[in-house]
Design a protein around this nucleic acid. Structure first.
Lengths: 222, 222
DNA sequence: CGTCGATGTGATACCCAGTGTCACACGCGT
DNA sequence: ACGCGTGTGACACTGGGTATCACATCGACG
């Protein structure tokens, strides 16, 4: 292959540049492929549609969320949900300017707005299915759906605040938002089965295992 | 005008019939207008897009929700939310078979699914804006968004159950779902400002004003 | 070293949704 | 009878998306 797999990157860059210069609707696929130096066929093979070029990472992110939730259990559901939601936020934070450009586009172009909404609802489905296995009791189905909606909605509120430049601590605010969501649905209860063993829940940490263990030991001894 | 305004109805009927016979994607607008006996121009003037013919009532419903919420206040917010959510449910219930046909389509055709999701998020925005005026305290913005998402999500769960034939009492289940949503966010609190006057909240009733008054009188006297 | 298949790419033709424009017919009031 | 607004039809055009065929590069294998 002549152009490695960077042909994809070239198309993304060309698309975002043109969208920024002349708007989404006014930019034709022909113009994108011309600037990227590829053919129409290549574009549609890589992205499937003009909209997909705006969200080139969604399939990958979706897979990562699914994997994180699949690694959780009824006992570790709180941290599983927190980390899975964190994956989404981190994806946007790491994209930086691209995320901002996308936000500007999704705000103004209805078609893209619908596209993003659909993606978010896809994430919500992942959370709902995971929660459905972790919850029991009356209204489990309804509560799982409400919780999933709360998680995604809470995340979106914080993400939007960050995109608007209204916060410098999106991670902390997401954590607080998830507190609000999970507390109100009784999800934050540790050891849901009333086990008498030792349950350690590490909600969030960037320390090493040894450091965490040290903190725990001192807490128990103190 | 020769064909009254039933040209619109004829197009809707023709579209649903063809979608049912050969699927959404396989049905061209030309086929629809041919069966309806109108021209292409007429179709696009009436609906704007092929998708819009599936949701011909959304603009009207949106206006009714907005009106109901606008008629509410911080004191009557609980009943305002309940009735506004009820408007959506009643719309679907009154459509009967058409709602079922639409559900079948939206489940299978991704484009229509995205369309419906976008509509639902439009309703969510109406609730969010109303709630934003009725809530105060910390995290008002976040709580309004979470509540709006809960209301719409709860409604959708019940609606979906009804569309699947899993319930005979969607109104009752919606009421219960909204209980769950509002209770968990402290929205159900009557007289939020701590007023010492008399606050009467009629949560749901199909009785006349006189009958309700009679029940209240007996409750106070007993 | 030649052959083969897999993969990424280009070129072309086609379908169909959606827009814009002009023309026509009808009802309605003056 | 005359305009005038409105709903409709006819037609041409743009542009997203699909299908098909051709070609070029690279690695595997005999």
């Amino acid at each position: 292959m002549p152009g490695q797999s960077s042909t994809r990157d070239r198309m993304v860059d060309a698309a975002f540049a043109l969208f920024d210069e002349q708007g989404y609707d006014a930019t034709t696929v022909d113009a994108i492929v011309e600037r990227a130096g590829v053919s129409r066929s290549t574009f549609f093979r890589a992205f499937g549609s003009k909209e997909d070029v705006i969200f080139p990472h969604h399939p990958d992110l979706r897979a990562r969320i699914e994997a994180r939730l699949a690694a959780g259990s009824a006992e570790t559901r709180v941290v599983a949900v927190r980390e899975a939601a964190g994956l989404v936020l981190e994806q946007y934070l790491s994209e930086g300017d691209v995320a901002l450009a996308r936000y500007r586009l999704t705000r103004t172009v209805p078609a893209l707005r619908g596209r993003e909404i659909a993606s978010m609802l896809g994430y919500q489905q992942l959370f709902r299915e995971a929660l459905l296995h972790w919850l029991d009791g009356p209204d489990a189905e309804l509560r799982a759906e409400l919780l999933a909606a709360g998680i995604v909605t809470g995340h979106n509120v914080i993400l939007r605040r960050w995109l608007r430049g209204q916060t410098d601590d999106p991670r902390g605010e997401l954590s607080h938002a998830l507190d609000l969501v999970m507390e109100s649905r009784g999800l934050a209860t540790a050891a849901p089965h009333g086990a008498l063993g030792t349950t350690v829940v590490v909600v969030e940490s960037n320390r090493s295992g040894a450091e965490v263990a040290d903190v725990v030991r001192r807490a128990l001894e103190g």
